[in-house]
Design a protein around this nucleic acid. Structure first.
Length: 471
RNA sequence: GCCCCCAUCGUUCAGUGGCCUAGGACACCUGCCUUUCACGCAGGCAACACGGGUUCGAAUCCCGUUGGGGGUGCCA
C-alpha cells in the first residue's frame, strides 16, 4: 500500500488566520501522505507582498500543529522569486509570453465594448512593448483546442482554450503571480497530487499550460500531477465559508474549548466517510488506514456546529479525568464565575466532564459553588417552587424541614443526601428540586450533594432561608 | 453575461443496475433509566429535485430542465 513517491503539498497564503476550509485541505493532504507514506510539503504562497503578513506564518504553523498535522518540507515562495522571474523571462524569450502596457481600465472598456466575452483581448500580442512603468507580462494562451485534466473527485474536467484569456504572469512591479509560482513549484518540487479546494478548479488550465511550457528538453513526458478538488465547506446559506461572514478561524475553535482531535475527526466527515461504514468517531489511525482521495464526495458540505459539538462532547467524555482537568483548567478563568481553586476543580471535575460540550463551558457549572446562586427566572422558580398555593406550601414545608435538619448533620455528601431525601420520604414528595433551586438558582446542573459540602454550612443555610422567605 | 462544478432525510456520510418497502450518525420528538441535568438505552419523524431516455430492471448509466454553488483580479 505504501507508495513513497507520493508528494503532496498544502499551500496557504498568509493573508489571514487559518480557517476551517484551509485546515480541511491541509488535513486531507496530510491524510493521504500518511496513508501512502508520502511526503507532505508546506509551501507558503506569499507572492503578494501587499497582502501577505509574515507574522501569520507562525499562526499557520501553530494551527496545523494543534491539529496534529505535520509536514516534512517547508518553502516560502518569497524566497524563490528569482526562479519564477527566470521562468517568465524564458517565456518571453521563446515568444510564449509578451509584454502589455494596457491599463486595467482600457482592458475593461474594450471587453465591454466587444460584447459578452470578458477578459483581455490580446491587444498587445504583436506590439513588442518595451519594459517600463505599468507594463505586465502576459502568457499567450492557445486560441483553440481544449485543456483538460483528470480530477480524482470530479472525473475529467475540460476547458475550451478559446475561453482562456492571455493572463498576467508578471505584475508591473516585476513580481510574478501565483500561477507561475504554482506551476513552477509543483514541477520543481515533484508534487504528484494536488489536493485543494474546489474554488481553485478554474486555475487548473492556466497552471497546466504554464507547466507544459516550462518543461525542459529532459522533462518532456513528465506527467501532470493528479488533482483532487475538495468540495467547498459552506455555511447555512450554502455559501463558501468566508473569514468575513463566518466565524471560522481554527484558532478561535481552540480558544472556545474544542479539542483538536474532535475538530480533526469532524473535519474528516465533511466530504468523506470511513469506507468500512463503521463509526465516524474513531481514532485517527483507523481513519488514515482507509483514507483515499477518490472516495471523497463532490458535493459541498455544510459546517454543522451542532455536530461538531457532539463530536467534541464525546471526545471530552472519553478523556481520562486527569487529562480533562488539564485541558479544562485554562478555561476556568471565567469573568462571570468566581475564582475556581484547582483543588476544588479536581474534586468536582468528573461531574463537569460528563456534561460539558465545550471546555469553555466548564466554569459555568461551578458558578454556585464558588459564587452566588444564579437569579432564577420567574418561570423556573414557579415551575420548581410551585405555581399553586398548594405546591408552594409543600415547598415551604420541605425547606423548613431541610433547614432544621441540615443545621447539625454531618457535613458530608451522604449525610446531606440522607437529610434531603429523608424529608422527601416523610412528606411523600421529591425534595431535590426545591433544594437545588435554593442553592443554585437553576433547574439543572451537576449533582447536588458532593459540591454542597464545598460550601460552608452557614452559606447553605442562608441560601435555603432566603429561598424559603421568598415563598 | 461567460466558464466550471454540484444535486439521497433539516444536516452529514452510505448506496457505483437487482440485496432499497433506501441504511448509519447529528439534530428534532417519544419513552425508559435517574428524586436535577447530562450520559446510556429503546423507539419515532424524515430523502433519491423534475422530465425524458437506455435496460427485463435505475437512487445508481445518458440527455435535458430546474435549482444551488464556485470562478471570472497586476488575490491565492
Amino acid at each position: 500500500m505504501s507508495d513513497s513517491t507520493v508528494r503532496v503539498r498544502f499551500s496557504p497564503a498568509p493573508t489571514g488566520y487559518l480557517h476551517v476550509g484551509s485546515a480541511r485541505s491541509a488535513l486531507f493532504n496530510w491524510m493521504y501522505a500518511q496513508r501512502t507514506g508520502g511526503t507532505m510539503v508546506l509551501r507558503i504562497e506569499d507572492t503578494d507582498a501587499d497582502r501577505s503578513q509574515p507574522e501569520l506564518i507562525d499562526a499557520i504553523h501553530n494551527n496545523l500543529s494543534w491539529l496534529g498535522i505535520t509536514w516534512d518540507e517547508e518553502y516560502r515562495q518569497s524566497d524563490r522569486f528569482d526562479l519564477y522571474r527566470a521562468a517568465a523571462q524564458d517565456f518571453l524569450d521563446r515568444g510564449l509570453a509578451y509584454r502589455c502596457d494596457c491599463s486595467q481600465e482600457e482592458v475593461k472598456v474594450r471587453a465591454e465594448a466587444s460584447g459578452d466575452q470578458g477578459g483581455y483581448d490580446g491587444h498587445c500580442r504583436d506590439r513588442n512593448v518595451e519594459p517600463g512603468d505599468g507594463v505586465v507580462v502576459r502568457f499567450r494562451t492557445p486560441d483553440d483546442g481544449t485543456t483538460s485534466y483528470e480530477d480524482l473527485i470530479r472525473g475529467t474536467v475540460e476547458f475550451d482554450n478559446s475561453t482562456l484569456e492571455d493572463f498576467v504572469i508578471v505584475r508591473s512591479s516585476g513580481v510574478p503571480l501565483f500561477h507561475v509560482a504554482n506551476a513552477y513549484d509543483d514541477l520543481d518540487m515533484g508534487i504528484t497530487h494536488v489536493v485543494r479546494g474546489e474554488d481553485l478548479v478554474n486555475t487548473v488550465p492556466r497552471v497546466l499550460l504554464l507547466r507544459q511550457a516550462m518543461l525542459g528538453p529532459d522533462q518532456q513526458g513528465t506527467p501532470n500531477p493528479v488533482f483532487a478538488h475538495l468540495p467547498l465547506i459552506v455555511n447555512e446559506q450554502r455559501k463558501k465559508l468566508s473569514k468575513r461572514r463566518d466565524d471560522v478561524s481554527v484558532g478561535d475553535y481552540a480558544d472556545k474549548g474544542y479539542l483538536a482531535a474532535a475538530m480533526r475527526n469532524y473535519l474528516l466527515t465533511l466530504g468523506w466517510g470511513p469506507r468500512d461504514g463503521g463509526e465516524e468517531i474513531r481514532p485517527i489511525n483507523e481513519l488514515v488506514a482507509q483514507f483515499d482521495l477518490d472516495d471523497i464526495n463532490a458535493a459541498p458540505a455544510f459546517f454543522d456546529i451542532k455536530k461538531l459539538d457532539h463530536f467534541n462532547a464525546e471526545y471530552i467524555r472519553a478523556l481520562p479525568v486527569e487529562e480533562f482537568i488539564e485541558a479544562a483548567t485554562p478555561f476556568l478563568d471565567d469573568p462571570d464565575v468566581g475564582t475556581i481553586e484547582p483543588e476544588l476543580f479536581e474534586r468536582l471535575a468528573s461531574f463537569v466532564q460528563e456534561r460539558v460540550r465545550r471546555l469553555d463551558e466548564s466554569a459555568s457549572f461551578l458558578d454556585w459553588v464558588v459564587g452566588e446562586p444564579r437569579e432564577p427566572s420567574e418561570k423556573d422558580w414557579k415551575k420548581v417552587m410551585g405555581g399553586s398555593d398548594e405546591k408552594r406550601e409543600m415547598s415551604a414545608r420541605v425547606l423548613d424541614l431541610v433547614i432544621e435538619r441540615i443545621a447539625d448533620c454531618p457535613w458530608e455528601p451522604e449525610a446531606l443526601e440522607g437529610v434531603v431525601f429523608g424529608v422527601g420520604e416523610e412528606l411523600e414528595t421529591k425534595t431535590q428540586m426545591p433544594v437545588r433551586m435554593a442553592l443554585t438558582g437553576a433547574r439543572s446542573g451537576i449533582p447536588l450533594f458532593e459540591p454542597m459540602v464545598e460550601l460552608d454550612r452557614t452559606v447553605v443555610l442562608d441560601r435555603l432561608r432566603t429561598a424559603r422567605a421568598k415563598l
